[in-house]
Simulated assay, not measured.
Amino acid sequence: MPHTLTAPVRHEADVRKSRFLALAAPIESPEAAQLFLDASRDPQATHNCWAWRFGAQYRFHDDGEPGGTAGRPILQAIESQGYDRVAVMVVRWFGGIKLGTGGLARAYGGTAAECLRLADRTELREECRVLCDCPYADMDRVQARLLAAGARIEHAAFDGQGVNWRLVVARADVAALEALYTDQTRGQGRFEVEPGA
């Protein structure tokens, strides 16, 4: 079962007079990864190299270091420790001694790996999306119960009948949430797993 970080974490290392700073954070989407990387970039640094994984999607960047010596080793650090939905930025301030391609890969990958080893992690639950609707009269009560049971509202649309929600729920909790929803709406609401979700 893959894991993600419970909170952002950082780790510093000095390798032959170069300073490396790894910054890692959990991400909720590829767009969130880009926001984290933009916020973590240090324009005064020599290089800002990074990688992220979100499910089957991943990206990495060497930021001017020789190809394959920075971004890919950071991604390998993420994958080798079983992480998903994680972004890692490793910032380097050059100290005057060249590390060579092997040294660079070990420095970037090692700094990222140690950062992730030190982090608190949590197991990722497989999620799916559920489409449901609810009359206005029941909306506040039903919403409170669903949120308390661990559902997240991804989207809400309102019409003449009530609210239509798209929920994100743990796949393992679908049956229990459906029973709760049916009870709270007295069988009047729609509750269906989104096709392909």
Score class of each variant (00 low, 15 high):
Met1Asp: 12
Pro2Asn: 08
His3Tyr: 14
His3Glu: 13
Thr4Trp: 06
Thr4Pro: 00
Leu5Ala: 08
Leu5Cys: 06
Pro8Ile: 02
Val9Thr: 14
Arg10Cys: 12
Glu12Arg: 14
Glu12Ala: 13
Ala13Glu: 14
Asp14Asn: 08
Asp14Cys: 08
Val15Ser: 06
Arg19Lys: 11
Leu21Ala: 02
Leu23Ile: 14
Ala24Tyr: 00
Ala24Asn: 04
Ala25Arg: 03
Ile27Cys: 04
Glu28Ala: 15
Glu28Tyr: 06
Pro30Asn: 07
Gln34Tyr: 12
Gln34Cys: 07
Leu35Gln: 15
Phe36Trp: 05
Arg41Ile: 05
Pro43Glu: 09
Pro43Ile: 00
Gln44Thr: 15
Thr46His: 03
His47Thr: 01
Asn48Leu: 07
Cys49Ala: 07
Trp50Asn: 11
Ala51Ile: 01
Arg53Ser: 05
Ala56Cys: 11
Gln57Pro: 09
Gln57His: 14
Phe60Tyr: 14
His61Ser: 10
Asp63Thr: 08
Gly64His: 08
Gly64Pro: 01
Pro66Tyr: 05
Pro66Ser: 05
Pro66Leu: 03
Gly68Arg: 11
Gly68Asn: 11
Thr69His: 02
Pro73Phe: 13
Ile74Glu: 00
Leu75Ala: 13
Ile78Pro: 00
Ile78Thr: 03
Ile78Gln: 00
Glu79Lys: 12
Glu79Leu: 13
Glu79Trp: 03
Gln81Arg: 12
Val86Trp: 01
Val88Glu: 00
Val88Ile: 04
Val90Gly: 02
Val90Asp: 09
Val91Gly: 01
Val91His: 06
Val91Gln: 10
Arg92Ile: 07
Phe94Gly: 02
Gly96Cys: 08
Gly100Gln: 04
Thr101Val: 15
Gly103Tyr: 04
Gly103His: 10
Leu104Ser: 04
Leu104His: 00
Ala105Leu: 07
Arg106His: 10
Ala107Met: 11
Thr111His: 01
Thr111Gln: 02
Cys115Pro: 02
Leu116Val: 06
Arg117Thr: 13
Glu123Trp: 07
Glu126Phe: 00
Glu127Thr: 15
Glu127Tyr: 03
Cys128Arg: 08
Leu131Val: 03
Cys134Lys: 01
Tyr136Ala: 11
Asp138Lys: 14
Val142Cys: 07
Ala144Lys: 08
Ala144Cys: 02
Glu154Gln: 14
His155Glu: 15
Gly160Met: 12
Gln161Asn: 14
Gly162His: 06
Arg166His: 10
Leu167Gln: 07
Val168Asn: 10
Val169Gly: 02
Val169Ser: 02
Ala175Ser: 12
Ala176Ile: 09
Ala176Ser: 14
Glu178Lys: 13
Ala179Asp: 11
Leu180Thr: 09
Leu180Arg: 06
Tyr181Pro: 00
Thr185Phe: 00
Thr185Gln: 00
Gly189Met: 00
Arg190Asn: 08
Val193Thr: 05
Glu194Ser: 05
Pro195Ile: 08
Gly196Trp: 01
